Amino acid sequence: MIEPAAGTWDSPAPGDLADRYFDAAIALLNRLRDEEGAGVEAAATAVADALAGGGRIFAFGAGHSALPAQDVVYRAGGLAPVNLLPVPGAVGVDVVPATLGSALERVEGLATAVLDTSPVQRGDVLFVISLSGRNVLPVEMARHARALGLTVIAVTSVAYAAETSSRHPSGTFLKDNCDILLDSKIPVGDAELSDPRIPAPFGPASTVVTSALMQAVMATAATDLATRGITPPMIRSGNVDGGLEWNAAVFEEYRDRIFFRR
């Protein structure tokens, strides 16, 4: 059993901790707004270019990095031709033991096999989301996708490259193997709070921040398409009147570019 840190300390009220967490997340979001605008625009242009030219959009993330990837797939208010690129056992924490997913991120050849048997094709866009960007799976995914002619958008924390070592044989990070880089600004360790009584930092913000970054790209891409005179293929909520019928029409029109339906 882990004992709390010794010594006396005035415990903050629960509301104070909540405020500290919200303030930290908002500060990170403000940094993205102020510092990643050019990257968001570049990523959105790549998405719009692909969709305007008949291409498809894919998103990949392993472990908890899969959550921001899933958040832009089959999403009310999102673009229809955005597809999850799944790696069996590595998407989310649905495997037992959960540590298997982390182990699979260090397996060489897995990303190459997934891409080679997937529906991706030259001209498509692939978002590779990895907080640390240091593991074999995301680095290999990005490198092989580029070799196949995809535009790779890396969503990662550049801070990890300065404070950790790569686990890929090349010694490179995800940030080094992409066409467009989006820096999530998340600090190493992904924890925004600390308490002398608690032996580890806590309060991760990467999911909140990275999901917001992904949604900013998709929203900008939709506006880009509209500016070009192209009606963006948006998904509506199935829980509003007419939503299911709207979506059925969009899915039919874009059926050759949507892979989350049979």
Rank of each mutant, 00 (worst) to 15 (best):
H168W: 04
G37N: 11
P68F: 02
P68M: 04
R56S: 15
L148C: 04
F127T: 05
G229K: 07
V240S: 11
V82E: 08
S170L: 02
V120N: 00
L131Q: 08
G123C: 03
S194V: 04
D94Q: 09
P204A: 09
A66E: 09
T112E: 15
T156R: 02
A200L: 15
A159Y: 07
T156S: 14
G63F: 01
R75T: 05
V82K: 07
A222Q: 09
T8L: 10
H64I: 01
M218Y: 12
D224T: 13
A18E: 09
R122V: 11
R20V: 06
V217D: 06
L29P: 00
G61K: 03
V155G: 00
G54A: 09
D16I: 12
R31A: 10
G238W: 14
G92D: 06
T156M: 02
N247Y: 10
E41P: 00
A25E: 13
H64G: 13
C178S: 09
A90W: 00
D179A: 04
G77I: 06
Y74N: 11
N247Q: 13
I129A: 02
A191Y: 15
N247S: 13
S194K: 08
E105I: 00
Y160R: 01
A221I: 10
S211C: 10
S130L: 02
L150A: 02
V73S: 05
S170V: 06
V139K: 12
S206K: 07
F58D: 02
S118P: 05
L84F: 15
L67F: 15
L85M: 13
G123Y: 03
I258R: 06
I186P: 11
T156Q: 06
A52C: 01
P4K: 11
D10R: 12
D19A: 14
S165D: 15
M141T: 01
P138E: 01
I186F: 07
R257N: 07
N247D: 14
A103E: 06
E192A: 15
G77T: 02
A191S: 14
V82A: 10
I129N: 06
R197A: 15
I198D: 12
E192H: 08
E163L: 03
V72H: 03
I57T: 12
H168F: 04
H64E: 07
P12K: 13
G63A: 03
E36W: 10
F22A: 10
L150P: 05
P204H: 06
E253P: 03
E140D: 12
R262D: 15
A161P: 02
L84T: 09
S237M: 12
G89T: 01
V47D: 04
A248H: 13
T220H: 12
N177V: 11
T207Q: 05
D176P: 00
A98D: 07
N247G: 13
A219W: 07
G238I: 11
L131Y: 07
F202E: 11
L104C: 05
I129C: 03
T227I: 04
L131M: 08
I57C: 10
M1R: 13
L126Y: 09
V125L: 10
D176R: 04
I235H: 05
D179G: 10
